[in-house]
Design a protein around this nucleic acid. Structure first.
Lengths: 215, 215
DNA sequence: AGTTGTTTTAAACGCTTGTTTAAAACAACT
DNA sequence: AGTTGTTTTAAACAAGCGTTTAAAACAACT
């Protein structure tokens, strides 16, 4: 059952990643995690203090591992044009989501009812991503755009990406799932084009203040 | 404690809406729901068969109530220009989210681990929304755009809106929360402009097939 | 072989959950 | 007043949870 050939701690982390991904924090049980790891049920408390301690370590490992494999610049030169860097950012985001998610989703799942320590951890881990996107948008947006416009554009871009995540799979048709590298590339190009058009529109709006606005 | 002056069934529905919204389906307990309604704990099973029966009724009531109050056309004439109808659609979406959500979120919350009956119910309820957006996009997109492009644009728009929902509140800064009507109007205009720009970009891309694409 | 400290187990604890049961309270009608 | 059927309660049930405990297995070193 439990994959031998590695330490108990590693096996627990692996099975915990599976089980938390399938059932979420509340739905996952220590018993099932230990069953899949092939060990007794008290070892979680022995190695990770408690259930949340194990969860935090799984979360951190998944997050940093995904960023290590798909960094937000995707190895692109930092002097590349911002359009290409935006595309790389979106591509990396989509790859990380499908990598971490698989059929299920762990990251961006429990964020509905997160414990304070999880919020802190997530904020810490997501910091470099936010920084990268801000840098890209600073170059793409007109200098006269206010800081809030930048935030709204970032929100629109992240929102589009996240909606392709496994957590919202039930909403979409199967056609729009990221189930192959080709599909990821296609969605990357769509979101990139859509967003560049959106950014252009925001820039134009900034030029012609006084927008038509229906009641 | 429990607001008197209405039937037990109504009081249960009301407190269940609160508790499910705060803790989600799995986190909510029948005992807490009944405590807030001021009745014994067996009445949920008496009136609604079981916990899921109560949840489905709460979900349906919330969803249809929100659409009744903020219909996807916002009372706009159906001959209005598609730009305005898109704006109205986005506005209604945001209003429904904040209305249903409040501090917490019920709809679009348990969709991560939904029961089969909840999926069925949600699909049924969300149908008219999808239909409305499709109609709008049909007018906005070039006739030569394929059906998939329409789906991707719809996904981008819904994704942007949903990311302002209460479920992802922890991700954003407080500035980008929909905590007043003015903020909703502002976000509506941003998402509308951004999306119209995005749609225009998709239309243009369709004209000039053979897009630059970095490795 | 014996001691010491770590790792692992099996069993139990205490608590909470959704649901059921049997009886009590109530209302309506004869 | 008495019967009947519905509504409500309080208590109990069975199952599952995270965690703890005490003892067993193991390894390393003297």
């Amino acid at each position: 059952m439990g994959s031998e050939g590695s330490t108990v701690k590693e096996r627990l982390l692996k099975s915990a990643t599976e089980v938390f991904g399938e059932f979420g924090f509340k739905g996952a049980t220590i018993r099932e995690i230990c069953r899949r790891a092939g060990v007794g049920i008290s070892l979680v408390n022995y190695y990770f203090r408690d259930k949340e301690g194990l969860y935090l370590e799984v979360y951190r490992e998944l997050f940093t591992g995904a960023i290590r494999e798909y960094p937000p610049d995707m190895g692109l030169d930092e002097n590349a044009v911002p359009e290409d860097r935006l595309s790389a950012f979106i591509r990396s985001f989509l790859y990380r989501m499908t990598m971490v998610g698989g059929r299920h989703s762990l990251i961006m799942r429990e964020l509905l009812d997160p414990s304070p320590s999880l919020i802190r951890l997530h904020r810490e881990l997501a910091m470099p991503l936010q920084k990268t996107l801000t840098e890209i948008l600073t170059e793409l947006l007109d200098p006269q755009c206010c800081e809030e416009d930048l935030g709204y554009c970032a929100t629109s871009i992240i929102g589009q990406c996240m909606f392709y995540g496994p957590s919202t799979q039930r909403f979409r048709q199967r056609i729009f799932s990221l189930d192959s590298d080709e599909k990821i590339e296609l969605v990357t190009s769509i979101i990139t084009a859509f967003s560049l058009g959106g950014i252009r529109a925001i820039n134009e709006k900034e030029h012609t203040k006084g927008v038509i606005h229906e009641a």
